[in-house]
């Protein structure tokens, strides 16, 4: 259950958007010395990761949210990172590192793919 967020979908999305929008302000002075860490948001809807490609930097996080009626995962192609099984409406946050495998899929539905552009 790494970092699983069990709050409702819309609430979680709102928090992510707020945190993302204010991150540079909140971290103010620190931001000039450290890279700003961004929280990205990926919806799983209609058996697709949306967006299917994301530009991310090490230290950024991605919140995966399952909006389908069946469970999904977001799992690195080499299984080095994965969400838990995300039931309908569940979300989970994954933190990206410099060696995170950039190609991922749903372990239950191998035709679902997503990718990360590591900056």
């Amino acid at each position: 259950m790494r970092g699983r967020i069990v709050t409702g979908a819309r609430v979680t999305k709102a928090i992510v958007v707020v945190v993302s929008s204010f991150a540079p302000v909140l971290w103010g002075a620190e931001a000039s010395q450290k890279a700003v860490r961004i929280t990205h948001y990926v919806e799983i809807r209609g058996f697709e990761f949306k967006p299917s490609n994301l530009s991310v930097s090490p230290g950024d996080s991605i919140v995966f949210m399952n909006l389908d009626i069946v469970p999904h995962t977001a799992t690195a192609i080499d299984n080095t990172w994965t969400t838990d099984t995300l039931e309908t409406g569940e979300t989970q946050l994954i933190t990206i590192t410099s060696d995170s495998t950039p190609v991922y899929y749903c372990i239950f539905h191998p035709s679902m793919n997503g990718s990360l552009d590591l900056q």
């Binding site: 209609g46 058996f47 389908d68 009626i69 191998p110 035709s111």
Partner: peptide, 16 residues
């Protein structure tokens, strides 16, 4: 319509 999306993914998976 939602179910069809699921079953089409199953079809692809079965094909693989």
């Amino acid at each position: 319509e939602q179910a069809l999306v699921i079953f089409l993914a199953h079809e692809k998976h079965a094909e693989m």
